[in-house]
């Protein structure tokens, strides 16, 4: 983050961390009936690309009732072939319409040789990959002026060709691109467990002052493998990571990201309330230096 954007804040001036929900159509009525319990919504931009008029009306309706942050899936920032200009243009239109405080996509590639692979695929953590990300992100930032934040993904394999750890790669990337981070605490925990590293060390190595938003949701256990299925209630181990992150950095918001196996909505609200309680408990307990990323 550029120095002139930095604002030092005392504990008293810290903005309230908002707790919200990833918007999914089946939640719509419940969300409107519980407006006071949901601070903001994350919309998946891809649901509104070339959308039917009803979806556009839905977006207008949501915008009029909640602060929204767009989250895109297919910018494919890790693709060596570059950014899909048409897709970027469509995302830009949605971001311009929503006028969010920030928008986000993933640290991965989803397209290769012009073909969508339908999956958030990891890249080897090399200097070359770093250059690709920097080039693509600069193109996105040139087109869209809203602050851009990047999300860590889960992966089922690690590249032998990687030259650095994920955390180091992310740190370098955030520094070079001046982007914020969307830290998915579930993804972090899953990767740490599946590949046997210490998630606390990961947190030590990334620039926490750049963490703007969190994602959290329950993990799914499949034999010995943990999977990010977005279909389970947030477990205690995830809350532990959440609590640690909240303790160590200042946040603008956290989003519960549930995509499948929807429970009764009061269970969703309970999870949102748990997140809120963790944040307020941490708030009361500790004084922390507050970083710059997007808090101006």
């Amino acid at each position: 983050m550029k120095e002139n954007n930095r604002i030092s804040k005392t504990e008293d001036q810290r903005p309230k961390t908002r707790i919200g929900l990833g918007f999914r159509e089946p939640f719509r009525a419940d969300i409107f009936l519980n407006q006071d319990k949901i601070d903001f919504l994350e919309i998946t931009t891809d649901h509104y690309l070339d959308a039917k008029p009803e979806k556009i009306e839905e977006l207008k309706l949501l915008k009029e009732h909640f602060p929204l942050v767009p989250h895109s899936l297919e910018l494919s920032l890790g693709s060596a072939e570059g950014i899909d200009e048409d897709y970027l243009e469509k995302i830009a239109e949605i971001v311009e319409f929503v006028k969010p405080e920030w928008f986000s996509d993933h640290l991965c590639f989803t397209r290769s040789g012009g073909v969508k692979i339908g999956h958030l695929a990891p890249v080897p953590y090399t200097d070359e990959s770093l250059k690709v990300f920097v080039r693509n992100i600069s193109k996105v930032k040139k087109r869209i002026s809203a602050p851009f934040i990047l999300e860590n993904i889960t992966y089922l394999m690690q590249f032998p060709s990687s030259q650095m750890r994920e955390s180091v790669f992310i740190s370098k990337l955030l520094d070079e691109t001046d982007c914020g981070m969307l830290l998915d605490v579930t993804n972090l925990y899953i990767n740490a467990r599946n590949f046997g590293f210490d998630w606390r060390r990961f947190l030590d190595e990334i620039p926490l002052e750049r963490v703007v938003q969190l994602h959290f949701v329950g993990l799914h256990k499949h034999k010995n493998l943990l999977i990010d299925a977005h279909a389970d209630k947030t477990q205690n181990e995830i809350w532990d990571v959440f609590g640690e992150v909240v303790k160590r950095c200042d946040l603008k918001g956290a989003i519960l990201e549930r995509d499948e196996n929807f429970p009764p909505f009061n269970e969703i609200l309970e999870e949102i309330e748990t997140a809120r309680n963790i944040i307020s408990n941490e708030f009361e307990g500790t004084a922390k230096p507050v970083g710059a990323a997007l808090h101006g």
Partner: peptide, 18 residues
């Protein structure tokens, strides 16, 4: 129309056996 859009998912709830 706005209310019907906002609460459209109640139609699904009405059909939900729970």
């Amino acid at each position: 129309e706005r209310l019907q859009l906002a609460f459209d998912s109640l139609k699904t709830k009405a059909a939900n056996p729970l």
